[in-house]
Design a protein around this nucleic acid. Structure first.
Lengths: 232, 232, 232, 232
DNA sequence: AATGAATGAGTGTTCATTCAT
DNA sequence: GATGAATGAACACTCATTCAT
């Protein structure tokens, strides 16, 4: 039964690939890209170096795969946070920021890779990082653009505001990751949201925001985001 | 006359060291730390590998030197922006942000190194980056703390606000550097300042801020910051 | 069948390791430790530099391995020469010296390494050499001590006698190796034994000693020492 | 007065050359030939690298010079010990061995170089060492040859006896140097002399030998050998 | 004569990638 | 599919020697 066998082996292959990806994520984030050798990953995965190259074209590819998975995951969180049209702009913003922080905290190790390690690896990755960053800025801009038109926010320049907004969020995450101390997601999210809403000159209700954060975290914790179909 | 000779050769040595530093800055920022070999730097500097090691203990040292120089330069700009006590808080903030943006633009290449490349080089540099980042956050916090007590600003949490603030500034700079397109410093600074002042819930006068930016840029362009005694 | 394969490859690995060791012994003894590069050894072994490092941690390790093997081999010869308790002291001495000379002649190249090259390589090796030399002196002393008590020998000082004795033997070997001319092992051994027995003021029977030398050489030639399990 | 000036500068040059030689002897013996760089010697001598090359063709030359000086010094001691024809063979032997031990002790550091370091430096030095060793053996042989004819000694083979004899002496010295502990020259010399006289089957008077040793040491300590015209 | 900055060939070692089994 | 031995280009760094001043 070649068909079934192939199906089974295909499955096995996917499972193993995920296993290697997970192991590599650990290795990269604890030692850094350049300090992690392919042999390190193979050893930690319990496979041989040769087998590694059966699953990934080269070292760069596995890193990129990891990068892409993480990125897709964060995007899916944001999409989820934004999808319910019944929320007000400030509520959506609160949900989005909360989702962002929660996502990075959830995948602590990969986050370090994405936000910190990636840029310096090589020119190709710098280009990729730049592209994704500009893409984010662009998406943010179109969001802000609508809010501006509806008078929900007031900012001097779409581009700069979007960039600053993303930088603020990312740096809070990065510093939390770098400082390696425990932190309260809830209160961090709250302070950051207040900061950003003020920055956008947006009306908001502190109590309502607190509720939004709580609700969002509950949703994330209870549903499939906790163990998504993607990487982990 | 050994004295004069030594004096002359000492000068020559310093000149050459700066020349190598400048060349290395170019190389690192265009190819990245890991993709730049000592031989690359030597070749680009018109010296031999051996000579490189006459001036620097190793590859890491020259990078760190570059890093420290840049950092010291940015700090000196900030110190300058803050030193005149006749300015109001919002004016000081406007001056500081302007100085920051101006400084990074002035040293385009080195900026890329500092803000982008450094973190991923190796654990030692990650630690160094972390330390300096936390130091910045800390300084920012104590500034915010005073402004809070005097009622000039209103934020939810000192730590988060300081981190978000720095992240906003750095990301605007980074994106400007990464996108590699020309931009108007004046208007970028203005939009960013507005964004941050709103974030801090600070009173401000748009016209006055525009003046502050213009003045600050004029001061920087006309005085010794344009060609400081440090690296360049 | 992974077991067999592993078994086979394990064997292959050992074979190759011995091959490299042998080649390195040649290289070191003909050009000296410092004049022999890892590439030299790799080239002479018909392997790549990378492969060398698959088998040995570094250049020092292969040298030390060679050194230890040779030392162990010589010790095993001496142990063999001494083990039969039916021999008289002078007979044992004759057998031991013969075994020593035979062993060094048998492994001409390695001998040069052990007796000549090793000391000057670096402080670590000097320490190692010193230690082994003092160990030899110490073993010799305890042998002499017994012979003194039984009145078989008469010497002024155990320490000096043991040191002089070893020096005499080693220098005869060294000079034979350095002069690179053919020599008659039998007669060299005989003259050296007479010299040493006289030095210890020991009774001996010239004819019997000649027999001892002949027998010992026959034993060594015919049994497993000729191609020991160790290095060669 | 060009003549006088040249004379003076010639003297100065010689003085400085000796100074460098002395410093180099220290350096080589404490760190080993390969671990000592030309810069090390220059720094320790208080001169520049360039000046070093004004006095010596290269690193090898200074080492060889040191080697030759030491050798010449030891030979001069032996010549002195042998020159008084009023002594009996056993007395001469006692004086020679004593002089040898005294000489090496006197120049502790250089001794380490000569007896230990030199052989492994490079093929050229190995050849040189071999040559000098064979020369020593040869001289020893002709001495033994005479003593054999006159019936003063009885040995099985001139070559082997001479080689063993030299090896015994050198190893005693080497071990004393390597073990780095204080030792009593007088008693070491005595034990070694007894060992060697027995080895040569020579008649001797223990009391007389002790006197010879004492006298020889006194002569060496009191006359110009203490600070010879040569190197030190 | 004296300097010491400059050189660059040479060394030990690593590691991403390949390929015979 | 799976292995892991083999590869060799690449790299950081050293140091004996030269030579312009």
């Amino acid at each position: 039964m070649p068909y079934r066998q192939s199906e089974k082996s295909e499955l096995r292959k996917e499972t193993r690939k995920k296993h290697i990806l997970r192991t590599a994520a650990d290795a990269f984030s604890s030692k850094g890209y350049h300090q992690t050798s392919v042999k390190d990953i193979a050893d930690a995965s319990g496979i041989s170096v040769g087998t590694f190259y059966l699953y990934f074209k080269n070292k760069e590819e596995i890193f990129e795969k990891l990068y892409d998975e993480m990125w897709a995951y964060i995007l899916s969180l944001i999409a989820y946070a934004e999808k319910d049209i019944s929320y007000s702009p400030s509520q959506v913003l609160a949900r989005t920021i909360t989702a962002n922080l929660w996502g990075y905290k959830r995948f602590n190790k990969l986050s370090k890779i994405m936000l910190i390690e990636a840029i310096g690896i090589n020119p190709r990755f710098q280009a990729k990082y730049t592209e994704l960053m500009l893409e984010s800025v662009s998406r943010m801009k179109s969001g802000f653009s609508q809010l501006m038109r509806s008078g929900s926010i007031q900012i001097a320049d779409l581009d700069v505001a979007a960039t600053a907004y993303i930088g603020a969020v990312n740096n809070v995450i990065t510093c939390l990751l770098l400082s390696e101390r425990e932190y309260n997601l809830n209160s961090c999210a709250y302070s950051l949201i207040i900061f950003l809403m003020q920055a956008l000159n947006m009306d908001f209700d502190r109590t309502n925001i607190k509720h939004m954060i709580d609700d969002m975290i509950n949703e994330l914790e209870s549903n499939h985001f906790k163990s998504p179909t993607q990487l982990f």
